[in-house]
Design a protein around this nucleic acid. Sequence first.
DNA 1: AAGAAACCTGATTCAGTTGTCATATTGTGA
DNA 2: TCACAATATGACAACTGAATCAGGTTTCTT
Lengths: 208, 208
Amino acid sequence: MSSAAKDISPSAPKTARGARTRARILKAAEDTFGTLGYHRAGISDITRAAGVAQGTLYCYFSGKEEILRELVRDMGHKVRAHLAASVIGARDRLQAEELGLRAFLEYVSANPSLYRVLQEAQFVDEAIFREYYEAFGRGYMRMLADATRKGEVRPGNDEIRVWALMGLSNFLGLRFALWDQDHSFDEVVTTISDLFRNGLALDGKEKA
Amino acid sequence: MSSAAKDISPSAPKTARGARTRARILKAAEDTFGTLGYHRAGISDITRAAGVAQGTLYCYFSGKEEILRELVRDMGHKVRAHLAASVIGARDRLQAEELGLRAFLEYVSANPSLYRVLQEAQFVDEAIFREYYEAFGRGYMRMLADATRKGEVRPGNDEIRVWALMGLSNFLGLRFALWDQDHSFDEVVTTISDLFRNGLALDGKEKA
DNA sequence: AAGAAACCTGATTCAGTTGTCATATTGTGA
DNA sequence: TCACAATATGACAACTGAATCAGGTTTCTT
């Protein structure tokens, strides 16, 4: 049920009309998955939302799973782009973390469906979920290493740190952007920034 | 499809035999969900693993979802107990964080199925998933507040911090206990401890 | 050992789903 | 305008898996 390179997209659209239809289906799937969840969402829910017939979906996708994969890839590109743009003016790594966290929260808030889809992908196709975070992590590690070299960040095990940071953002996004916005993003960013700058302990910077 | 108090367990077992069977089913469900995932796991897979007939499952549970809920509650109790026991000898909050993180990683490593089930519950019954983390978070916040009062921890927004800390543990558990144990728990704990004690910045403890 | 209560069985039902395919429509280049 | 390739349709065959229930088995009590 999950051999490696099994289902290449039945065929890429060859005209602008086809491309438009494919995109409509993808958007409808995003909304439907976001509302109903992947499993509760049926093919017919997606095609109805897209305003096409059932069969049309199979012109562009081999099935539900391939749509999910496509959406996860999409989320990857979009988040990366959004975060990359957001940290452009940062004077150092710590400020980049602040800008990045805020941008992430904003992205989640603006794209709740896509975020839910990503999380749910963990249980539908774990490989693509891991791929997302491993790719994200690689980029993040490079930035931390650079910042350490520049003396902006304490040396440390960056792989572990990166997973900690991704997890932290993940939960903050879930709680404060997706579930309830009972705290401003400012508040969240300030609190986390303080953690990064000073730690949790009242008396740090001595006994390790 | 999800009215509030819909399905009370059809009936609690009234003899030791019944209790045993119920427990067998629960354990089989944990294993089956852990291996196949909630959706791919069928009732027949669970009952086969438990060595009982299909119908037997319905003597003790109203269906698949109730089993999941039961398992999440289970995970809640077990994790709490394990963590509470692990931090008993801690001299301060920071050491408690170290002990707690290690205990959490050990728990995940020893109970991968239960951990997966908890994560997947997010998409099956979001309420029980939130409940788990909100309950966990409440206890955690109390401890942080105490530690702040004692002067062990910098004052700050503890709700936000707690969600950050839970997210951090969550991802570290996923990556370093569930997926690959390519780093020792010591290494993970040390790295995170350094973050808590000193932050990420090379020069903290001044400009906020 | 009889009777009752609890426990267990598993073939069957049934609501729902996916993916197919023969056919229809659209639009474009010659 | 005609041909034909791409695109779209939607009824339906084939399948899935949850839940049922009429009846059998075990255990306990007296």
